[in-house]
Amino acid sequence: MSLIKDLFTNWSVWRRPGYFESFDYSWGMVIDLDRCTGCEACVVACTAENNLPIVGEKRFSENREIKWIRIERYWSGEYPNAKLSFIPMLCQHCDQAPCEIACPVSATYHNQDGLNTQIYNRCIGTRTCAVYCPYEVRFFNWFSYTWDAPLEQQLNPDVTVREKGVMEKCTFCIQRIREAKDHAKDDGRRRLREGDIQPACAQACPTKAIVFGDRNDPDSQVAQMASDARGYTVLKELNTSPSIVYLRRVDQEHV
């Protein structure tokens, strides 16, 4: 009952822009598109870390692929001057997340770390959140996927293997955040330090295009890079206030 009461009293606070500043942490990411080569190492790392299923060719053609991070490609211009640009797209962990207001059972919510989280146990699979998400980064498990031997041996024990009927998405490698917090407490530290956590995609990135950190800390690399002149957020006009800031690619023609 107290939870419902909290919900009503805090509702106006939660919907206020900037309410996330009072959270313990505000995990964010900066992706430098000038460094990104589109090698998809982050995609592979994410698949391995978070037990993502390989859906197969048929289901891929049915748009049932599950990839928490993907490289989106955009072609522009005609043949001799055709130009390819790409952008890594993952859950933006919006502070004003459209998916959160959509869920009828509150299976997706903002936690005290400023993360947009998904609870698989509570999800009933209405898929409303995926409809509301403007970034198309939520994935529904249409089937229970299995891993052929010996691949099931490489499943990450810290991450649940999702069954059919639940929605899933990027968690900012919340299992690593939790483990780092555990280690910090073992060492008697109250707070995490810069560099304690690296999500799988940032760790795998060969050009260090992905930087992860706490946006609440003004000295963190993320906070400093986010104020770069090249910085922008995707679909800014929707006022979702994403946690991920992209740094624009420096083009020869724009210099």
Partner: peptide, 11 residues
């Protein structure tokens, strides 16, 4: 601390 947050115990 954060003892009621879902992701404190669920994974």
């Amino acid at each position: 601390e954060n003892g009621r947050d879902c992701w404190t115990c669920h994974k």
